[in-house]
């Protein structure tokens, strides 16, 4: 109990009558990389959205850092230390790479109240933004608008945007969706590097990504938790294979 950073208790959510989550109990330990998998329609993305505050649960609780945060708005969760990315590439594509990262750096540094401050005059913000860009190997493209970046770099920007608030828990929604093999490879490396020592929850389709990144896996099926365990255990569970992996041929 004391080591879990995120917990859901008996979470229900229905979509105008359609039951999507039917009592999900999830536990994420501090410092682990936790993957949520499941066949299509299992409720992964809905669970993700309920946890990150986009939807309010119909029943049950979301507990983050020991606090009941059910129904909290996204910006509040963010301030409590939960960072996230979206399934659709969620950078600010009309802003440059530099401006994208600066958005995150600004909110991390907590300059929230002085809205009319000239951002280009904040030396430390500029410096920190450059550091982040260098870390994700985007410093040469700092003046390029996000939507002009290559797909891989764009996704890297996105993950690092999600990380830029320096969250205690980062939630990633299919970070490698639509990437080529090579791009996936470097994205996984990048994610591993950026989330070093952090707690991460990832919703993912690509089993290679899941098995190379995750410490622990929760399998969702029909809106319920089917199994929880280490990658090796999950791989060998018969019911998981039946529900999901069986047809996937992993």
């Amino acid at each position: 109990m004391s080591t879990s950073i995120l917990e859901t208790k008996d979470l229900f959510y229905d979509y105008s009558g359609l039951q999507v989550l039917t009592g999900v109990n999830l536990q994420v330990e501090k410092g682990e990389r936790h993957a949520i998998i499941g066949p299509n329609g299992a409720g992964k993305t809905t669970l993700f959205n309920v946890i990150t505050g986009l939807y309010a649960p119909c029943r049950g609780k979301v507990i983050f850092k020991g606090q009941n945060v059910s129904g909290f708005k996204p910006h509040k969760l963010s301030r409590l230390g939960m960072g996230r990315s979206f399934q659709i590439t969620s950078t600010f594509h009309n802003l440059t790479a530099f401006e994208n990262i600066r958005m995150g750096v600004l909110s991390r540094m907590g300059i929230r109240f002085n809205m009319f401050q000239r951002v280009d005059k904040l030396k430390d913000v500029t410096r920190e933004t450059d550091v982040v860009l260098r870390r994700i190997n985007l410093h040469r493209e700092s003046a390029v608008p996000a939507n002009a970046l290559s797909y891989g770099k764009h996704r890297a920007l996105e993950v690092s945007l999600a990380m830029s608030t320096n969250p205690d828990l980062v939630m990633l929604d299919e970070p490698t969706a639509g990437m080529s093999r090579d791009e996936t490879h470097s994205a996984v490396d990048l994610i591993r590097r950026l989330t070093e020592g952090k707690t991460m929850v990832i919703v993912e389709h690509d089993m290679d990504v899941v098995f190379s990144l995750a410490d622990r896996i929760t399998v969702l099926h029909h809106g319920k938790v089917l199994a929880v365990g280490a990658p090796n255990e999950i791989k060998n569970m018969q019911e998981v294979k039946d529900a999901y992996l069986g047809h996937g041929g992993v």
Partner: peptide
């Protein structure tokens, strides 16, 4: 030039992500 402007311009492309960064949209 201002932080508010950054937020507004960012929100034009993705307001969900802006609130995920902790801004009260």
């Amino acid at each position: 030039k201002t932080r508010l402007g950054m937020i507004i311009r960012a929100a034009v492309s993705d307001r969900d992500m802006v609130s995920a960064l902790g801004i009260n949209m």
